[in-house]
């Protein structure tokens, strides 16, 4: 069963207490241990791999050396035969036989190391993929856990606040009212401003036309006061 199916089943169960964690601490610990183990396996396989690869390279080098040796000895056989030294030629031929056998052993070893290398590489790839998968699942478990706990905290807070007394629609309507109110206030402000601006304009015009008193008002007052005194 996939993890998400398990989580779904646990969440659907519904028999839980509010805020009760669906993820028990023990399974988180086991999960963590499994991840650590997988990581350990990968590390070990990587160390093994370098060792086996080194051995494979050594075997390959040995095969090469022996084959060069064989060619050299075949040349010697040719020379011995040219000298009509049949006995020596036979002896060298025997040596070639020994070299051949050794080359075969090294070749087999090399093939086996190569096999081992491929197996290790495959295993590292598979375990790495499994590890990534486990880590992803682990994050899923922890996220679910964290969401559950956060929800518990929110629910406690929410239940004690006044906001939960309202339905979603009521909340929305209140917010919309506030928005409308703000818009009304803004446009009222604009209208008022326009009116004030209008008055100012009119004042200016009337002043200019000499219908109402302009800046000379103070001087007029002073003149009147002087007249009184006088």
């Amino acid at each position: 069963m996939s993890l998400i199916t398990k989580i779904l089943t646990a969440l659907r169960g519904g028999a839980r207490e509010v805020g009760e964690s669906i993820v028990d601490k023990n399974s988180i610990r086991i999960f963590e241990q499994e991840i650590k183990d997988a990581q350990g396996q990968i590390d070990k396989a990587k160390r093994d791999l370098t060792e086996v690869m080194a051995k494979e390279m050594q075997a390959a080098r040995k095969v090469e050396n022996i084959q060069a040796d064989i060619i050299k000895h075949e040349d010697y056989v040719g020379k011995a035969l040219a000298d009509n030294n049949e006995t020596l030629a036979l002896e060298i031929a025997e040596k070639i036989g020994v070299l051949q056998a050794e080359a075969d052993i090294q070749q087999k070893a090399q093939a086996s190391f190569e096999n081992h290398t491929n197996r290790l590489k495959g295993m590292i790839k598979k375990t790495t993929k499994a590890l990534a998968d486990m880590e992803r699942q682990f994050i899923m478990v922890k996220t679910t856990d964290s969401v559950q706990k956060a929800t518990a905290a929110i629910t406690d807070n929410y239940a004690s606040g006044s906001s939960k007394l309202l339905t979603a629609k009521e909340s929305l309507d209140r917010i919309k009212e506030k928005q409308a109110d703000l818009e009304d206030r803004l446009s009222a402000g604009e209208i008022l401003q326009d009116e004030f601006d209008g008055t100012d304009d009119l004042d200016e015009k009337m002043k200019a036309a000499g219908i109402i008193e302009g800046d000379s008002k103070a001087q007029d007052i002073l003149a009147k006061l002087k007249a009184k005194q006088g």
Binding site: T143, V147, S163, S171, L172, I175
Partner: peptide, 12 residues
């Protein structure tokens, strides 16, 4: 002006 519908933030 949106007090009725608060947002909750948690960090994991």
């Amino acid at each position: 002006d949106r007090e009725e519908l608060p947002i909750f933030i948690s960090v994991s």
